[in-house]
């Protein structure tokens, strides 16, 4: 009985969460359709988000590219197929690791900051003040952050892809004496332009997840400073889980069939 009740409560809480996020998405789309966009704020957010995340994105992708190259080069050279290393590194970077790692890093850095900022605006009545002035918090806060993420995350992903391939190329040469020309020609064979586009599409979806979850957690903050802390943590946890989940689903439909 107790278990059933608790299960029911959890189900209701989940449905409420889902409903909340969906209505947030609906209101955001309405704002976008009516072109109610604060361009200056969007620009500032994009700039801060992009510049602020660039270094950490570059570092994580560089080391990831290097480690994939290290592992695959070791195996490949043993079996005499060192010419395939470029393909392996590029393939995994562009299709999976570039978009995923960038999204996870940005969820940790930016998703948390969005939830914390909006959450503290809730507890200090700044959100009520906006509503009271006849300004929609969605138009004022959510839309610029969503747009900034939707523009910058794919851009950061492009940088991540490139640096991870360059790092891989360097290790392949230094460690397994695979020359860059053969690395690149193998990369070209393995990965087409459509793979790059699909990877960027993924990162666009991840951007939406980070923005909506961060904003929603922030807006539904209750209970002072501790509430802001909880909102921040759950924004990161929930968006990372959703990123991994949707990544699998998207890979299945985008790449799985072929």
């Amino acid at each position: 009985m107790g278990i059933l009740e608790r299960f029911g409560e959890k189900t209701i809480a989940f449905l409420e969460y889902l409903g909340g996020i969906i209505s947030l998405i609906g209101e955001t789309i309405r704002s976008l359709v009516h072109a109610q966009i604060r361009y200056a704020e969007t620009f500032v957010q994009s700039y801060e988000l992009g510049i602020g995340s660039l270094l950490i994105v570059l570092l994580t992708s560089l080391f990831t590219g290097m480690v994939i190259s290290l592992e695959s080069a070791q195996q490949a050279v043993q079996y005499g197929i060192g010419s395939l290393v470029g393909g392996a590194v590029t393939y995994t970077s562009v299709r999976e690791l570039g978009p995923m790692l960038t999204a996870v890093v940005v969820a940790g850095r930016v998703g948390s900051a969005i939830a914390a900022e909006i959450g503290s605006m809730v507890v200090t009545e700044q959100i009520d003040a906006l509503r009271s002035m006849g300004l929609s918090p969605v138009r004022f806060l959510v839309v610029p952050r969503l747009l900034a993420l939707a523009i910058m995350l794919p851009l950061l992903t492009i940088f991540a892809d490139i640096i991870s391939i360059v790092g891989g190329m360097w290790i392949a040469q230094a460690y397994a004496h695979i020359n860059p020309a053969s690395f690149i020609s193998s990369a070209r064979q393995a990965v087409g332009f459509d793979d790059v586009v699909k990877g960027l599409f993924k990162s666009f979806i991840f951007a939406c997840i980070i923005a909506f979850v961060g904003c929603y957690q922030g807006l539904s903050t209750r209970g002072g400073a501790a509430g802001v802390g909880r909102a921040t943590t759950s924004a990161v946890v929930i968006s990372i889980i959703l990123i991994f989940g949707t990544n699998f689903i998207m890979s299945y439909f985008l790449f799985g069939g072929h």
Partner: peptide, 10 residues
């Protein structure tokens, strides 16, 4: 509404 604790956007 003039809020009790101002509620200015910081």
């Amino acid at each position: 509404l003039a809020f009790q604790f101002a509620a200015l956007l910081d």
